[in-house]
Amino acid sequence: MAGMQAGVELAGFGRRLGAYLIDLVWLLPLSVLLGLVAGLVNGGEISWGGEVMGNVVVALVVMLFWAERRATPGKLVVGVRIVDAATGGTPPLGRLALRYFGYLVSALPLGLGYLWMLWDRQGQTWHDKLGRTLVVRERR
């Protein structure tokens, strides 16, 4: 954590899992709603283009939360934030986009990239490494 302030506490696996589960509560209905709208526009059939558009909208909503609040609603509830690994500040938008793309990379080998934080010295998942981010506990 070169450049990070001393005393920063990394978010543990349990907090991160809790944030993910909370985010599913609002992201899943949003995804379903977008799929239904895409199906209605396409005459009742869900098309490949509708699926892509739904995923892009969800990605943009998540990245907007990251850019504005450094956290999704789930992360806010459990008291963690995403920070630039070098500075502790808000990561640039390009790196947040890489981090989001990294979710796919983390998931592909049976979720190994998500579990990687369990033995990584900096508690980083593969998507954290790709975006050069850390997830830290918020100071109260």
Rank of each mutant, 00 (worst) to 15 (best):
P29V: 07
P29R: 10
L30K: 02
L30P: 06
L30V: 11
S31V: 08
S31L: 15
V32H: 10
V32S: 09
L33P: 00
L34Q: 05
L34W: 06
G35Q: 12
L36F: 14
V37L: 14
L40C: 01
V41F: 11
G43K: 09
E45F: 08
E45L: 07
S47Q: 11
G49Q: 12
G49A: 15
G49K: 01
V52M: 03
V52Y: 00
M53A: 15
M53H: 02
G54C: 01
N55K: 02
V57F: 03
V57M: 01
A59I: 01
L60Y: 08
V61W: 07
V61I: 15
M63G: 02
L64T: 15
W66E: 13
A67F: 10
E68A: 13
R69Q: 07
T72E: 02
T72K: 04
T72N: 03
P73G: 10
K75G: 04
V77Q: 01
V77D: 03
V80C: 12
R81H: 10
I82S: 10
I82A: 13
I82Y: 05
V83T: 10
V83D: 04
V83I: 14
V83E: 09
D84L: 10
A86N: 12
T87Q: 06
T87G: 08
G88P: 07
G88W: 04
P92E: 15
L93A: 13
G94D: 12
G94W: 11
R95N: 12
L96N: 12
L96A: 09
L96Y: 11
L96V: 14
R99L: 12
R99G: 07
Y100T: 05
F101H: 01
Y103T: 12
Y103E: 10
L104K: 00
V105S: 12
V105F: 10
V105R: 09
S106W: 12
A107W: 11
A107C: 08
A107R: 01
L108I: 15
L110D: 00
L110G: 01
L110N: 02
L110Y: 12
L110M: 14
L110E: 01
